[in-house]
Amino acid sequence: MTRQNRITPEGAIVADPARGMFMGNRGILHDDMGRITAPFRHRNWVCCVLEFKGRERKLMQPGCYTELFFLDEALALAAGHRPCADYNRFREAWAKTTGSKPSAKEIDATLHEARVVPRLRVQRTHEADLTDLPDGTFIRGARTPALILGDRLLPWSPSGYGASSPRPGSGRVTVLTPAPTVAVLKAGYRPALHPSAS
């Protein structure tokens, strides 16, 4: 049975058999039957590597956090998560945008405000000119979300990126990656990308 534990660039939790490169959590989101009952339970949304010191977990155990999976780190950032394994590198880039190194709690609070519309509990988006957006940013495409990479736009699917199209020279777009994270990407943070992006 395919579990509902894959994350889209819009932050939705969907069922898909594709295996991603990263995992993360937003708290205990499932009931004892493994059904998703909430989009998040706390503000410290993280993304982590799939393997760490040989540890293994049984997925969606009652009373344990819900394991969520991402195609790659760029997608996790677009969905509003912050790195766990690369936290220090992310924090250094964040400091370049603000002038000081915030705590994880401060980063989480800022990201939460930028990623979620209160009460509706849906993804908050923002508008920007395409020329101002750095590599690793996700935008809303005509048919599917797209990743910006150099002079290309790569359409997303749960199993990888599709054939690229040229990145337009300008134009307003809807940005899925939270604004503070876009600033971190501009400051030089480079997320790990799925092999299909190359």
Score class of each variant (00 low, 15 high):
99 G>S: 08
119 R>I: 10
96 K>T: 06
73 E>P: 03
111 L>G: 00
58 K>I: 14
96 K>W: 06
124 R>Y: 05
114 A>Q: 02
125 T>S: 11
61 Q>E: 14
125 T>A: 08
83 P>S: 05
81 H>C: 12
77 L>G: 04
96 K>E: 15
125 T>V: 15
58 K>P: 00
122 V>H: 09
110 T>Q: 11
60 M>W: 15
106 E>L: 12
111 L>H: 04
94 W>C: 09
72 D>N: 05
109 A>H: 06
81 H>L: 09
97 T>K: 05
72 D>A: 01
47 C>P: 01
79 A>D: 03
71 L>F: 01
115 R>K: 10
107 I>V: 12
82 R>A: 14
104 A>D: 13
106 E>F: 03
102 P>Y: 07
94 W>G: 05
83 P>F: 06
109 A>V: 08
90 F>S: 03
103 S>H: 06
101 K>S: 15
67 E>T: 12
81 H>D: 07
54 G>H: 02
98 T>D: 08
76 A>D: 03
50 L>T: 09
48 C>D: 15
126 H>W: 15
99 G>Y: 07
113 E>K: 13
112 H>A: 05
71 L>S: 04
52 F>H: 12
45 W>P: 01
82 R>W: 14
102 P>N: 06
123 Q>Y: 01
80 G>V: 04
57 R>Y: 14
96 K>N: 09
72 D>Y: 01
92 E>G: 00
97 T>W: 06
101 K>T: 14
88 N>C: 09
107 I>Q: 07
77 L>T: 03
61 Q>V: 12
101 K>P: 00
46 V>D: 07
117 V>Q: 07
78 A>S: 15
76 A>R: 02
79 A>N: 02
106 E>T: 13
46 V>F: 15
88 N>S: 14
47 C>K: 02
83 P>H: 06
124 R>T: 01
83 P>E: 05
92 E>Q: 12
120 L>Q: 13
58 K>V: 14
80 G>M: 03
97 T>Q: 07
77 L>R: 01
51 E>Y: 13
68 L>Q: 04
51 E>H: 14
79 A>L: 02
77 L>S: 02
119 R>P: 00
125 T>D: 05
49 V>S: 11
99 G>W: 08
91 R>F: 03
